[in-house]
Design a protein around this nucleic acid. Structure first.
Lengths: 190, 190
DNA sequence: TTGACAAGTGGAGATCATCTCCATATTTTG
DNA sequence: CAAAATATGGAGATGATCTCCACTTGTCAA
């Protein structure tokens, strides 16, 4: 999928410096920095920045690729060790919890999910895949309904990500998960 | 709430021309037009455009104010004529249906809901109020749970609005509503 | 090692959308 | 009808984004 082109040594060094500086800045809340200044801060030229990361989102994705990967790994781990429905709940609750303490990730996810050019959203796609898997597994055991797709759940997660700066963020986000989980559950009647 | 300042005759004329042209352009899918060019198209100077609508969102809100009001009115009407839970379902289904055929409105809502400066989001706030009322009414009759606030539901609606251009939009959006409604419903067990 | 080719760099400056400013024009009011 | 209040338009300041290319650095075969 991701074709690994052998990057020249200095190129890799610059790329890493860029990502490191971005991570640092994001961590301290600087998201809207001028793109050019940002290059200067990382100690590279503007051209270099643009060559490595054509857009702000591309950079953000690179910064959070790891975290996203970690989340996906966690999902697979949960899926391997817990009953399907518990894995699902655990993952979704954890998702909110993680976003709550990582604004940068929330911002990034919101942007990636909204991005029309699907190419960039590789990270978001991975997340979608993981959710789809969790749902499919739970549906197979019959604990949740199978007439609502993963896309719907992703849509709610998008809503959650996009709301990172609302005052009642945590409460509402937890509420969304509660609704989704309850809505997915199969009930005796009907 | 909205203090009505008596606008000078020519001022009102220009303002209306601006809104009319914007509505027209939005209807044919031109959303990302240059703001300045847009003024020219409407036959007014740049300054005039900026005086009336300081931002793109302000203009969008003005254009869709009516539609948003209509939606809120419909909600109140439903609430007056249907059992609380049916009113809620009917409203939410209608919401998706309406967004589906009005991309501009969807875009606008997504932006308004995301807008940090709450001032602008007057239209979105009205929508929030209406949803809160519908929920409260249904909760009072005991047909839906009361431990999840309107904020959570709004968050899912935000997700729906933001996804206006996804390929499986309609299916997924409907799925979200299904989940939310099912999740809200009170069940015998538990 | 070295030469030659490929790969990457930096940053000045072109480009472009946004927004301000104010001399001028229009409307209202007394 | 004159003065005061209100609004106009669009040239140009501003400031961010992105391109371009002469130059540097790295790689690799001999």
């Amino acid at each position: 999928m991701t074709d690994t082109k052998p990057l020249r040594a200095d190129a890799r060094r610059n790329r890493d410096a860029l990502i490191a500086k971005a991570r640092e800045l994001f961590a301290e809340g600087c998201f809207d920095l001028r793109f050019d200044d940002f290059a200067k801060l990382a100690g590279v030229g503007t051209g270099t920045l643009y060559r490595h990361f054509p857009t702000r989102e591309a950079l953000a994705e690179a910064v959070y690729r790891e975290e996203l990967t970690a989340m996906c790994d966690r999902a697979r781990e949960l899926q391997a060790t817990l009953p399907a429905d518990e894995a699902l709940e655990s993952f979704l609750r954890g998702f909110v919890d993680h976003l709550h303490s990582h604004e940068g990730l929330a911002r990034t996810l919101a942007t990636l999910m909204a991005t029309r050019s699907s190419a960039l959203a590789e990270g978001a796609q991975a997340l979608g895949q993981v959710v789809a898997d969790l749902l499919a597994a739970a549906a197979k055991t019959g604990t949740i309904r199978d007439d609502v797709g993963a896309g719907a759940v992703m849509m709610t997660l998008h809503g959650i990500s996009a709301a990172y700066d609302h005052p009642a963020y945590r409460t509402d986000a937890d509420g969304v998960i509660t609704l989704v989980l309850a809505g997915l559950r199969r009930h005796s009647g009907r």
